[in-house]
Amino acid sequence: MQVRGLSVRLGGSYVLEDVSFDIVEGLNLVLGPNGAGKTTLLRTIAGIYKPVKGRVDVRGEVGYMPAEFADAYMPVMDVLLAGGRRSPGRYLAWLKAVGLEGFENRIFSELSTGQKRLVLLAKALAEGELVLLDEPTANLDPAHKALIMGVLQRVKKLKTLVVATHDLDLVNIADNVILLKGGSAIQMRPEELNEKVLSAAYGIPILVVEADGRKLFLPRYDV
């Protein structure tokens, strides 16, 4: 799957300009500072926005998890079945896969933020082969974040994931990185994401430290 020469215009100005990259099997990470166009890119891949130029070649159904959603007062099962796409059994299997077995009768609005995200993650995974996730680890405590990262690491063998995030820890489980800045994109392997590239992308020095067999990313705050 691939994106070629993609240009997207919103409110009169170009948000993405001539963006090209490949979507590999596994986890594709979309990085970039606030306003870089990550959400716009996901929406364009999902078909919400029409590009003015270029094309998106994707196969299969798309599952989508937005960064923001309403606090719907309804059981988790009704959230999963909303839109009427798949059988209840399939949703329940994915609910179990994200660690929320037995939550189907709980009220969605009465769950914690992390649990709500997990429910919408299960829904997106049940509905698509290509699954687009917008900031899946935002506002999560370390335990919930570890849970979601564990789920992503396991399901990336079954689904193609495209994840927009500011959470650099996800680099450790990524197979492909798309770095957005100033409307254009650079594709690279996760190993290539070093201090120089990151510091240039975000405009502040970011230290990369290896510990416990993985990379830690440490922005400097005193500049």
């Binding site: 937005p66 909303a82 839109g83």
Partner: peptide
Amino acid sequence: ARRMDLIAISDEMAKVRRI
């Protein structure tokens, strides 16, 4: 009703479903 529920949760998710 199921489509209304989707809109109640997220406009974005509804748009992905071509609503």
